[in-house]
């Protein structure tokens, strides 16, 4: 299975889903008009990955902005991770937010309360 690397754009984040390392990175801005189009291949990739994941999978979410259209797609990704976790795999989601960005911290806490996977909130200094 191939890893996915997608260069970021002003409206879509950098994606680095590394199959060998078991690391998933989303970084930048996620404000596309059609989020499903962007996230569908990622959800599909994660579905395939979950059939034989690494013993430990770390997901780093380092988003500066995301729109509400992306928020459901992020939930889809996290649900796949929750499924992997229930099947006995170790999953960690690192949720990064910039200093003073209470909205981004709160968004992370919303997911944390919905998804049964360990979330780690990490504050970044500007």
């Amino acid at each position: 299975m191939d890893s996915i690397f997608i260069e970021g754009t002003p409206k879509t984040p950098n994606i680095n889903f590394d199959n060998d390392k078991g690391s998933l990175l989303l970084k930048g801005r996620s404000i596309p008009e059609n989020s499903i189009e962007f996230y569908k291949p990622l959800v599909d990739w994660l579905e395939a990955y979950s059939s034989s994941p690494k013993p430990k999978t770390v997901c780093d979410v380092q988003l500066e902005y995301f729109n509400t259209s992306s928020s459901k797609c992020l939930l889809d990704l996290f649900k796949k991770m929750e499924f992997m976790s229930k099947s006995g795999n170790e999953i960690i989601i690192n949720w990064y937010y910039e200093e003073d960005d209470e909205d981004m911290l709160e968004a992370g806490e919303d997911y944390q309360s919905i998804i049964n996977v360990p979330f780690k909130m990490i504050e970044m200094e500007e």
């Binding site: 008009e33 059609n34 989020s35 499903i36 729109n67 509400t68 259209s69 992306s70 928020s71 459901k72 797609c73 939930l75 919303d110 309360s113 919905i114």
Partner: peptide, 19 residues
């Protein structure tokens, strides 16, 4: 917000009334 986020219904654009 969380109720709408986790509900199955969503518009074809993905937002589903969260905006």
């Amino acid at each position: 917000y969380k109720e709408v986020l986790t509900s199955d219904g969503r518009s074809d654009k993905g937002g589903g009334g969260l905006g």
